[in-house]
Design a protein around this nucleic acid. Structure first.
Lengths: 225, 225
DNA sequence: ATTAGGGTTAAGGCAATATTAACGAAATTG
DNA sequence: CAATTTCGTTAATATTGCCTTAACCCTAAT
């Protein structure tokens, strides 16, 4: 399978560097320098993965992300944001704009390549997708309506619980470290205690099933249907 | 955590200057004067960070970088190149050989120290996101899911056991000394008794098969499918 | 027989996680 | 805009399960 990656950033240097490294690995790469061009490029290029800077002229990454998600085929693509080290990820963390993941700048090519491979592998696995819904096992997550359906039973989860669930379910089986979870759901700058995660996990287990969320001691949590 | 830095340059003056400034900050520093010695020093010293000149006699920095990356543990270390300001080594050439970053000569000690601190901070964070899958024989190690599959049978191993296994499997057939294992799995500063390793080996043998882990008396252990 | 090096087992300590309740802040309601 | 409910977090306490060690065993070499 020939994988296509769309890079979006307003700095030409970064585009060149990333493009070079990804093409060396055999990926087909196209680039765009702002959000508006990214949407156009997405339509014609139809990539499996989009790597996009958050802050850009014309149209920022999150707005572009939303627009792409609204297009036909737009729910299939994996969208990952490039964020500055200390940038606040909490806005995106809700995946409100539809992003799947993020990678922190400065970007090291080796890390990038391995992450890209992981994302594309994930893309291969999620073959069934309809609209804004993501489903795994008997579990359906509707990001638009903030609703979760588990074997027919409908739940309305509070924001944090929902975001935590969405994160874990986005890659079933994958272990998310506590640090990663804090970054993704709460944001880099927010300081909350470790026990906070536990409590939210507790509530998810109560509502959706004790056995779905596995603890890996000293590491983190994972979702497993 | 005691951080170790390996300096590599053919000019003794530079080595002295950098060493002095880094040791003043509490880092453990070793030096090497060419690429070949750098590879050796890496194996015995196991630093978290390597600062390396690009141009050197015997073996240049980029070649040394590639060799180190091929060693077990070689993907964990952060490698930064020292480059002359006007040198034509594009950053990419360095990145291509597996370098993470670079710093331009002439080097100002204060800048250096702050950069080194930033790199080591990054090193602390990256260890949990590295690598995804490695497999040998009927054995598959999935670092992302913290799962080990042996001929179809799936195991969940505790952290230390998992790390020990991952280390041994990273170079099948290679003998790892007890000292090396302690450094790699427990860290350089943690003091644990020798029997601790035995016990963990015991558990691995119990779970995955007695014959997979071979004892080399007076030396250490190796994994062999 | 002695020693060195490793193997084995189980128990205790301890750090990581689970759980519950309670409080303040937001949001919702009357 | 008070009254009420819901949410997010923390504090306090309980519990879990991993790590380590101590104590003892085994084997091979001297």
């Amino acid at each position: 399978m020939q994988f296509k990656v769309l890079l979006v950033d307003d700095e030409q240097d970064i585009l060149d560097l990333l493009k070079y490294n990804l093409e060396k690995e055999g990926f087909v790469v196209e680039t765009a320098s702002n959000g508006r061009l990214a949407v156009q490029a997405f339509e014609s290029f139809q990539p499996q993965l989009i790597l996009m800077d958050v802050m850009m002229p014309e149209m920022d990454g999150m707005e572009a992300c939303r627009e792409i998600r609204d297009l036909p085929q737009g729910s299939e693509v994996i969208i990952a944001f490039l964020t500055a080290r200390n940038e606040d990820y909490s806005q995106m963390a809700g995946f409100e704009s539809g992003g799947d993941d993020y990678i922190a700048k400065p970007i090291k090519p080796r890390i990038l390549v391995s992450k890209v491979k992981a994302w594309l592998k994930r893309w291969e696995q999620k073959s069934d997708h309809s609209g804004t819904e993501a489903s795994t096992g008997g579990l359906v997550i509707d990001k638009e309506k903030y609703l979760v359906t588990n074997n027919g039973e409908v739940f309305h989860l509070p924001k944090k619980e929902f975001e935590l669930l969405a994160l874990l379910v986005s890659a079933p089986g994958r272990v998310f470290t506590r640090e990663y979870i804090l970054n993704a759901v709460w944001g880099n700058d927010v300081i909350v205690g470790d026990r906070t995660i536990d409590v939210h996990i507790r509530k998810l287990r109560e509502k959706l099933g004790e056995e779905l969320f596995k603890t890996i001691k000293g590491v983190g949590y994972k979702f497993e249907p």
